[in-house]
Computed example of a mutant assay.
Amino acid sequence: MAEDTNDDENVELNLHNTGELLRRAREQKNLSLEDIAKKTRIPHRHLASIESGDFDALPGRTYAIGFAKSYARTVGLSDASIGSQLRTEMDEQGHGAYQAESSGYAPANPSSIPPLYLAWTAAGIGVLVLVGYLIWRTLILNPDDITPVTESETAAPMESAAANPGPQNVQDSVAAPSGTGTVVLTATEPVWMKIYDAEGKRLFENEMAAGDTFTVPADADNPQILTGRPAALTVTIDGQAVPQLGTGELTIKDVGVSAAALLAREKTSTPAADISPD
């Protein structure tokens, strides 16, 4: 009888474990970890670490909580409750809110890495382009090919320019980014990010490999970003680069990524705000 009582107590304790709650909910829906990984696009090994409570194997506190919330939504649990419970467990185990984020976790899908032959092909094309440019530049700058221009030949163009003034330089002729322009986020190395609107509705949440891009929906209501590695993202508006969202390995959240918000931040020289590990 005493042994049965101990078993009941162990089951009761496990019910308070976040990983156990997620695992039981998954099994009730007859889902495997592979099924959850496919639905959430979270690496299988991270899901297994969450279930077992092995927080040291996860890339960081922010990622662990974000992964657990996505897992919870997939199996029909409250993501807010799971996130709160996981924070408490991590605090109890010494994984505090200001624990440094890991900066080197690998891409979720190794198949997304370009094959070696593509890299060599790109390098060969680059060499050919460089050689062609050097040959063209040599021909253009060869003094023997330069024909002197007389004063009479320059008079007409100068008069035409005076009558029809144009852009002073190339930069003046390029239109400035618009507050309604298209914003594109490009990963320069593996990085996880979440994009959400003013109501907290998730627009995107995933780990991006180097070269992956995400176009912010033009009709999104005040789209904002959460990421632990802002320096791994480049931002453009209609193809024109704007300052990075942040530097170093500090997590940023609630930073606007609409064209209007990015241009306003650039004009006021305000750094990416609300830096927080959660």
Results as ranks from 00 to 15, higher is better:
Ala2Pro: 00
Asp4Trp: 04
Asp8Gly: 03
Asn10Met: 11
Val11His: 05
Glu20Ala: 13
Arg24Glu: 14
Asn30Asp: 13
Asn30Trp: 07
Lys39Arg: 15
Ser49Thr: 08
Glu51Thr: 07
Glu51Arg: 08
Phe55Glu: 03
Pro59Lys: 06
Arg61His: 03
Tyr63Trp: 04
Ile65Ala: 01
Phe67Asn: 06
Phe67Pro: 00
Phe67Ile: 13
Ser70Ile: 14
Arg73Pro: 07
Arg73Phe: 07
Gly83Cys: 08
Leu86Thr: 11
Thr88Asn: 07
Thr88Cys: 02
Thr88His: 04
Thr88Ala: 10
Met90Gln: 10
Met90Asn: 03
Glu92Ile: 06
Gly94Gln: 01
Tyr98Ile: 02
Tyr98Leu: 08
Tyr98Thr: 06
Ser102Arg: 06
Tyr105Val: 01
Ala106His: 10
Asn109Glu: 14
Pro110Leu: 04
Thr121Arg: 11
Gly124Val: 13
Val129Ser: 07
Gly132Arg: 10
Gly132Val: 06
Gly132His: 01
Leu134Arg: 14
Ile135Phe: 09
Ile135Asp: 07
Arg137Glu: 14
Arg137Ile: 10
Arg137Cys: 04
Leu139Trp: 03
Asp144Val: 09
Thr147His: 03
Pro148Phe: 02
Val149Met: 03
Ser152His: 04
Ser160His: 04
Ser160Val: 06
Ala162Leu: 14
Gln168Pro: 00
Gln168Asn: 04
Asn169Val: 06
Ser173Asn: 12
Ala175Glu: 15
Ala175His: 11
Gly181Ser: 05
Val184Glu: 13
Leu185Phe: 02
Leu185Ala: 03
Pro190Asp: 04
Val191Lys: 00
Tyr196Asp: 11
Tyr196Glu: 14
Gly200His: 07
Leu203Ile: 11
Asn206Trp: 07
Phe214Trp: 04
Val216Phe: 05
Asp221Glu: 09
Asp221Phe: 07
Gln224Arg: 15
Leu226Ser: 09
Thr227Tyr: 01
Gly228Lys: 00
Arg229Ala: 02
Ala232Gly: 04
Val235Thr: 15
Ile237Pro: 09
Ala241Asn: 09
Leu245Gln: 10
Gly248Pro: 02
Glu249Gln: 08
Ile252Val: 12
Gly256Lys: 03
Val257Thr: 13
Ala259Lys: 02
Leu263Gln: 10
Thr268Gly: 09
Ser269Gln: 15
Asp278Phe: 05
